[in-house]
Computed example of a mutant assay.
Amino acid sequence: MAGFLIRASGLVAGYAAPVAGPLDFAVHRGEILGLAGPNGAGKSTLLKALWGGVRVFGGSVEKAPGLAISHQAQGFDDLRGIPLTGRELLRLTGATTDGLPAWLSGRIDERLDRLSGGQLQFLRLWACLAAPADLILLDEPTNNLDKAGVAFLSDWLGHAHAAQGIVIVSHDHSFIDQVCTRVVSVGEESPA
């Protein structure tokens, strides 16, 4: 494959102390890389290290020049009382509504705090997936999604554009097996 979008070499990452790694991998355009492993192995920490959200204790993260990253984190910010609509969220990330599933496109002008947990999760995903980015980082993207949401996401990822690379952390092994072109195992032991 031609040049990588991002490459981790001996990556050890954490917060006050190392919690994950060392790990080696590269992501190229057209690839969907899954980071798999048990709870507490540091998968989310390693994902955050790719965009600079945690401390790198060892190794390196190399990025292609001008790399644009879109990152979907786990969890929800408290949106009660914030008058932001779905369309405004997408506009903030530069995402388009093109391709948004019908069950959500009809609610795009509603305030985010009026959506169900699953609708909000999918809209947050879409804000990341449909944004202009070279590399998409997804942390537990199927959380709070119903079967229709997971099926739509799986289908979309199956037709992902060859111009992007995607890294996914998920506890849903069948989802990882279905959508990823390659899986890297993250061990459960912390580095010494």
Rank of each mutant, 00 (worst) to 15 (best):
F152H: 04
Q119G: 09
G10R: 08
G3D: 03
P191R: 08
R114G: 01
L92G: 10
W103V: 10
V54Q: 01
Q164E: 11
A130Q: 00
G53M: 07
A148W: 03
V54P: 05
G40Q: 14
I6N: 00
T181N: 10
I32T: 08
L112W: 04
L153M: 14
G59L: 08
Q121M: 06
Q119R: 09
L5Q: 02
A130I: 01
F175D: 03
G99K: 03
L35V: 05
D109L: 11
E88G: 00
A73R: 12
R182Y: 04
P191N: 11
D78H: 11
G86C: 13
Q72D: 01
L104G: 05
S70R: 12
L138M: 05
G187Y: 03
F175H: 01
S185Q: 15
D24F: 07
P141A: 07
A2Y: 07
V167I: 12
L5G: 06
C180F: 13
G58W: 13
W51K: 10
G37T: 12
D155V: 03
G165Y: 00
A160E: 05
R80N: 14
A68D: 12
A68C: 15
I82N: 07
L135Y: 02
N143Q: 12
V150A: 06
G187F: 04
A192Y: 08
A2P: 15
T93R: 10
L120S: 05
P141Y: 11
F57P: 08
S185T: 14
L100H: 04
G86K: 12
V183P: 06
A102N: 11
A151I: 10
K63G: 09
A16W: 10
L135P: 02
E88D: 05
V169H: 06
T93Q: 13
S190K: 15
H173D: 09
A68H: 15
I82C: 08
N143K: 10
L89W: 07
I32A: 03
L67H: 06
R80S: 13
A68V: 15
Q164C: 04
A20C: 08
G149K: 05
A127F: 06
E140A: 00
